[in-house]
Design a protein around this nucleic acid. Structure first.
Length: 943
DNA sequence: GAGCGGGCACTTTTT
DNA sequence: GTGCCCGCTC
């Protein structure tokens, strides 16, 4: 048996890229199950939601293959599986013990935007107060010549963005060295107090609160023993994934939870159970410094575990790499052994341990050097064009391993990994020019890009002038750039809508804004919205704030979208609604598991966490990788948190704090490079621009320094660790192998495959999410009215079933619901008539009583998730009534039908109903039968 | 080494 | 639109 599977021991595994980390985690989890642990007593903490679902998937896959009995047993208990993010876990603790913690049990987590709004408000109010008694920061600003509200609030915001650290400094009373820093923190603490009060009033938490409060709850609260005990009772084993990205606070939480176990006096040991903790991670893949990831945590855990647990602890450093071919392994070892030398010792430094390749075959690493042009932009252009050409010359020529079989590579095998998105558009252009299909894996959704968001808010407001929030966003946006100070003053003035408040303002900027905006509202009455947006952009000169090509493109795309909606005849309110929904549905990241999509993927290095690709392209290596310093630095060192503030960037260079932070960031850049390189399975191509007679810069310097590729600025031809090519060579192969010529090429020799060992590879399972909803277009078939009616009927049914409304109130309620759906008064009256008639019929036939009205053991709008193979279905079941161990499922179809259509409709919904039935059987553990309930025609069809 | 003006480039992102 | 770096002067 592998040592890491020994469930009598706690384990830390240092598991580098491609060494089967997820597999090990899943195997350990299974070992615990096999060892008799109950599923609800194992807690597994992952970094993201995605990682959590992957972990579940992987575990089930192994079980399905190797232990069918256990597979079925566990599948039954899937909902009890505790595989979640640390935030979800903390939230659960807080909810569960809300009474003991003095929190409102209905507490909820705020989204980012609302949190930032509440925060800005708090800053504003605190500063107003401070202005009246200027003993703190304003004096200091005056002395230093720092002017302006925005500057000051930006310092506070900067500090706040580094939460939870500044909050911890205050709460834990850390020693603060400088006078200025003390003043800043004092001011910050006032803002924070206000912010906290505001959250309390609204029963809201932000993401940082989850960890902070959970930690306080278990560490300091008088009730903590209770909580610990009950946690203890429910958890025997903890597993943590991506441990290198754990923050100090997260570690403190885990540490506290396991304290009792280690001390050996816990009740568990007496009862003969051995609780364990299992940590997997790779120091070299820690790339979330900006989010508080603290590498020392990993180091510390290793040391303290052996101290505490002695022989009941096992440490393992995996060397084997199952992902990459030897050429890539050799290159990686060569590069990073020097870049991350094991001899340097500071706990935040990265130390490299060389890989052992396990895959057989060659692989290829190449470096394409571009003759540097005048500007960065030009360089990126030349580079992108070379990259596109290189891709074209590889297609149909280069062979990669697909499992054990060799085949020609395709676009879908390739990924371009960027450090940042700045020059994204340049790469897109180059690929487009070559006709290469590609998909960009985006970070934030289209609708949340600042330029799109600004236009979206503007439209929202013009369509509904009572929408203060949208107006606020518009006024803050670069179109008007009105300061917080001015705006908050206005907001706090009275009860009338914001637009009326700004009318009376004496501030010139606000006045101008008011005039422009009212002009637009007037215009919108007789001008298409798309045209209006174009005008807005030219009138305000808005274009110039979005100078980047990508932003221009986004703006154009948005205007086009609106144009489309208008040409399809949607009303303004429709469009507004559509925008709100589109934004909610914007999944942000395009799904890169779009299997079967033969396209090159473009993404940031950060986004590749946990992914791998047969062929990886790494452009812009010459880019400067020294991060810009910020004027505030918060740093951790062995439990101490320190803070430093300095406006002057020249002075910063001489201050220890800033220097060390910089060192840490440079160290992280190296790790990012490591992550990028190790994504490649078979082929790695790097690109960069080299200035003549100047030493290489950025990551190019790393390669040059460490592997002797360049000698005195000249390329060293002796290098066999990677193939170096220049632009003319790229052109040459491109022209001889252009895809149009590929067809004429003879097929390559059939490959005599030696059996190679490729598993267990950390292969990413493909999980597809599908919403189970109406898939025939009701609008097309039955018209707009029935779409609206469908939504209203469903709401009414749900509210009736849940007892929210009484049958007497149907008419009143339907008017309110209809009003939200359609602005037209005549429409409301007409639709209301249809609803009333329908309900009369439902009452007469008894369906209202038998199906819809509240009863024992029944559910309405029950949400579910159901996994079938690689697909996770999610949806809501309209109505379930359980009687005598049998669940009856009703799916409401509210549109009118003819009896002759019934057979066809039944077929159409058979699959959907089948999913519902399985889901219900699983959730409620009873047999189920399902009915389509056509409420207009009063037909009940069993499936 | 401080003080300037011109030139140039403009993070990463999860809960 | 900013803010930073570099090179120049004193």
């Amino acid at each position: 048996m592998e040592k890491y599977l020994d469930i009598t021991k706690s384990v830390i595994i240092s598991s580098p890229a491609g060494s089967g980390k997820t597999e090990k985690l899943a195997r350990r989890y299974i070992s615990l199950l096999l060892g008799g642990s109950e599923i609800e007593k194992i807690l597994c903490i992952t970094f993201t939601e995605k990682a959590a679902s992957e972990m579940k998937e992987r575990t089930m896959k192994i079980l399905e293959k190797e232990n069918l009995d256990l597979f079925f047993k566990i599948r039954e208990k899937m909902p009890l599986m505790r595989i979640s993010t640390i935030h979800a876990f903390c939230f659960k603790i807080l909810k569960r013990f809300s009474m003991e913690l003095g929190l409102d049990p209905s507490l909820d987590v705020m989204d980012e935007f609302n949190a930032s709004l509440l925060w800005s408000e708090s800053v504003y109010e605190s500063l107003i107060e401070e202005k009246d008694s200027p003993d703190l920061f304003f004096e200091m600003m005056k002395n230093r010549g720092i002017k302006g509200w925005d500057r000051l609030s930006s310092i506070l915001n900067d500090l706040h963005s580094r939460r939870p650290h500044p909050e911890l400094i205050l709460k834990e009373n850390h020693f603060i060295e400088g006078e200025e820093e003390k003043k800043i923190l004092e001011l910050y603490s006032r803002c924070l107090r206000r912010y906290t009060d505001k959250k309390l009033e609204r029963h809201l938490l932000d993401f940082d609160d989850l960890e902070l409060l959970a930690y306080e709850a278990i560490a300091k609260n008088t009730e903590w023993q209770n909580i610990l005990y009950s946690f203890d009772e429910h958890t025997d084993h903890i597993l943590v994934d991506e441990f290198q990205d754990t923050s100090s606070l997260q570690w403190k939480i885990i540490d506290k939870l396991t304290e009792e176990w280690r001390s050996g006096i816990g009740s568990k040991r007496d009862s003969g159970k051995t609780p364990t903790i299992f940590l997997v991670g790779d120091e070299k893949q820690s790339i979330y410094l900006f989010r508080g990831a603290n590498l020392s945590v990993f180091q510390e855990a290793k040391e303290r575990f052996s101290e505490w647990l002695g022989r009941e602890y096992h440490f393992e450093e995996v060397r084997k790499n199952y992902r990459s071919l030897p050429a890539i392994i050799n290159f990686t070892n060569n590069l990073f052994e020097r870049l991350m030398p094991p001899t340097l010792y500071e706990s935040w430094r990265t130390r490299y341990a060389p890989f052992e390749a396990t895959r057989q075959g060659d692989g290829r690493v190449e470096l394409i050097l571009i003759d540097a042009a005048e500007s960065t932009k030009e360089n990126r252009g030349k580079e992108a064009s070379a990259l596109a050409k290189r891709i074209q010359s590889l297609i149909g020529h280069y062979e990669i391993f697909d499992g054990e079989i060799k085949r020609h590579c395709a676009y879908g095998d390739m990924a371009i990994l960027l450090r940042k998105r700045t020059h994204l558009a340049t790469f897109e252009d180059a690929l487009r020019k070559e006709g290469i299909p590609f998909i960009v894996v985006k970070g934030i959704g289209f609708y949340d890009e600042p330029e799109v968001a600004a236009l979206r808010e503007l439209l929202s407001f013009i369509i509904d002038t009572m929408d203060d929030y949208s107006l606020f966003c518009v006024l803050r946006s670069p179109f008007f750039g009105i300061e917080y100070e001015t705006l908050f003053k206005l907001i706090h003035k009275g009860d009338q809508p914001l637009i009326e408040k700004i009318q009376s303002s004496t501030n010139k900027k606000v006045k101008d804004a008011f005039n422009l905006i009212t002009g637009w509202i007037e215009k919108s009455k007789h001008t298409p919205l798309a045209v209006l947006l174009e005008d807005v952009l030219s009138e305000t000169g808005g274009w110039r704030y979005y100078w980047e090509k990508q932003r221009h493109a986004n703006i154009k795309k948005f205007i086009k979208l609106i144009e489309q909606y208008e040409s399809q005849g949607f009303s303004c309110l429709d469009i507004r609604e559509k925008l709100i929904r589109a934004r909610q549905g914007d999944e942000g990241k395009a799904n890169i598991n779009t299997e079967g999509m033969n396209a090159v993927k473009i993404m940031t290095v950060h986004a590749t966490k946990g992914l791998q690709f047969p062929m990886v392209f790494l452009p812009s290596l010459d880019e400067d990788n020294v991060p810009k310093s910020s004027h505030i630095v918060i740093d951790e060192d062995g439990g101490k948190i320190s803070i430093a503030y300095e406006e002057d960037s020249t002075k910063r260079k001489k201050i220890e704090h800033f220097l060390r932070r910089r060192e840490k960031e440079i160290e992280e850049e190296k790790r990012l490079f490591y992550v990028a390189v190790t994504r490649a399975r078979d082929f790695l191509c790097m690109l960069g621009a080299l200035k003549r007679e100047k030493p290489p810069t950025g990551r190019l310097a790393y390669i040059a320094d460490t592997s002797g590729i360049l000698k005195d600025g000249q390329i060293n031809p002796e290098m066999d660790i990677l193939k170096i090519m220049n632009e003319s060579q790229i052109d040459e192969i491109y022209f001889t192998r252009h895809p149009s010529l590929v067809a004429r090429h003879l097929p390559s020799e059939p490959f005599m495959a030696e059996p190679i060992y490729t598993g267990p590879i950390a292969y990413e399972p493909i999980l597809k999410w599908r919403d189970v909803t109406e898939d025939i277009d009701i609008r097309v078939k039955h018209g707009e009215d029935w779409l609206v009616l469908g939504r209203v009927f469903h709401r009414l049914f749900e509210e009736l079933s849940k007892g929210v409304i009484h049958p007497d109130e149907i008419e009143k309620r339907s008017i309110i619901l209809l009003r939200d759906e359609t602005p037209n008064k005549g429409n409301i009256e007409r639709l209301k008539e249809i609803i009333t008639k329908n309900f009369e019929k439902l009452e007469k036939s008894g369906f209202l009583r038998d199906v819809i009205l509240p009863k024992e053991n029944s559910y309405a709008e029950l949400p579910f998730m159901l996994q079938r193979g690689n697909t996770i279905f999610r949806g809501r079941v309209d109505r379930i009534v359980v009687k005598d161990d049998m669940a009856t499922i009703y799916d409401y179809k509210t549109f009118p039908i003819k009896d002759s259509e019934l057979p066809e409709l039944t077929e159409k919904y058979r699959f959907q109903m089948e999913i519902y039935r399985s889901a219900v059987e699983k959730i409620l553990s009873v047999k189920a039968k399902s009915y389509l309930f056509f409420t207009h025609a009063q037909r009940l069809i069993e499936l």
